[in-house]
Nucleic acid binder design. Structure first.
Lengths: 220, 220
DNA sequence: CAAATAAAAATGAACGTTCGTTTTTTATAT
DNA sequence: ATATAAAAAACGAACGTTCATTTTTATTTG
């Protein structure tokens, strides 16, 4: 009646999935052989099949585990947001997002594998109704922003916040995964500062008179 | 002594590469077999190797062809930009970018394949010094914007324009490739309108006094 | 608290299949 | 008749998975 202790099973699975993640994200799903995984995990080929029925099951298990991890991190990025459009708060969020992207580039590599080799089966829900989810999470804070009097009433706060959130992720992803070394022409800190300044100062009305004049004068 | 006319060779290569693109972007590089390509192109396996030495050469030839095509489209998106930050001009650019993304999702699928299966070998240069390239293309127009008097002098015009450009691509990519059906909570047209309003109205100074007050009042 | 025990875990060779590529054969067009 | 394109056949290597066997492990027993 000796069965491997549950924590031992957990430990072995983590070892296998860590190894599999490493090779999957470098060679793709079909570019990775189970021998690659076994070797990377220092486990026999046969034993892999004691823990997973198929190679694809390993892939799906990795995604499940990673998705749970990312959900925690996303909460961390959005969690303590109080004055949602306060530049200082956005700076903090940007810093967390930077950390998330730089620490977990493999998460997006998995996403790209899913798109190119699995028809976006596993990550399809991630971006669905993003703004609506944002509204559900930050509804009160977002609504509060519109009641300050200076809010640009033409702009939906949920859209605005989601756009900033996505823009920051995009910036760091381009830097980390797409090889865009300082693709905005300056350091991360300065670029983020400028992006936030751009976004926030556009959210607050200034009456719009001098601005329009400026545009008219500009040429078009 | 029949030698295939050059345009016939070109035609056959295009047929093969179109077929290969179709299967590559659905199964990935290693998930696609040369038999898949041959069948899709209605060509024998052996004959494939009369046109390409290896499977990888087919992949690289596709990228080369597609990159040239995309460069033309990018020029179209940026081409007739005169008042670079004029909302109407940005609307036009957004429309072109939408068209580009919706007509060519396979270009980005190739990019994701390159990242996950080739270590970003072939597309690494695409995002390098994006803002600097933007400066090279639109330098005069960007500089002109800073001389209108109402420009927010803290913000680098090249960064601002590149950020808007990237944000629009990101928006449509999320919609088309990542399954985010109306992820900003509204139609493409309305979302784009809001993004542009957000970005541009943040570029022009209003003195900053009432804005800061608004933020202070907001809670943080 | 060892030693014995039985069940589970781990192993690596072997399976049939499919892979990318090469070689051989056939068809075609001057 | 001959050079070339296209197709078919064939190649060894590598694929995902299975399985008979060995090793390890947690428990029972003395």
């Amino acid at each position: 009646m000796p069965k491997l202790r549950l924590q031992a099973v957990e430990r072995n699975q983590k070892k296998i999935e860590d190894a599999a993640l490493h090779v999957f994200t470098r060679l793709g799903f079909h570019g990775t052989s189970v021998r690659d995984i076994a070797k990377e995990a220092s486990v026999s080929i046969g034993n892999l099949y004691n823990y997973y029925h198929t190679k694809e099951e390993i892939f799906e298990s990795i995604i499940e585990r990673y998705e749970a991890h990312m959900e925690k991190l996303r909460r961390k990025a959005l969690g303590p947001v109080q004055g949602v459009f306060d530049p200082a708060e956005l700076q903090r969020m940007a810093h967390v997002i930077r950390e998330i992207v730089y620490d977990n580039p493999d998460y997006w590599r998995l996403m790209y594998i899913d798109i190119t080799e699995f028809g976006n089966q596993h990550f399809a829900g991630t971006f669905r109704s993003l703004a609506k989810n944002m509204q559900a999470r930050l509804g009160p804070q977002l609504e509060a922003s519109t009641r300050t009097g200076v809010w640009n009433r033409d702009i939906d706060p949920a859209l605005a916040f989601t756009a900033i959130y996505l823009q920051l992720f995009t910036y760091f992803l381009v830097e980390k995964l797409f090889g865009g070394k300082q693709h905005l022409g300056m350091s991360d800190d300065r670029a983020v500062e400028q992006l936030i300044k751009m976004a926030t100062e556009g959210l607050w009305r200034d009456g719009g008179k001098t601005k329009r004049d400026g545009l008219r004068r500009m040429g078009k």
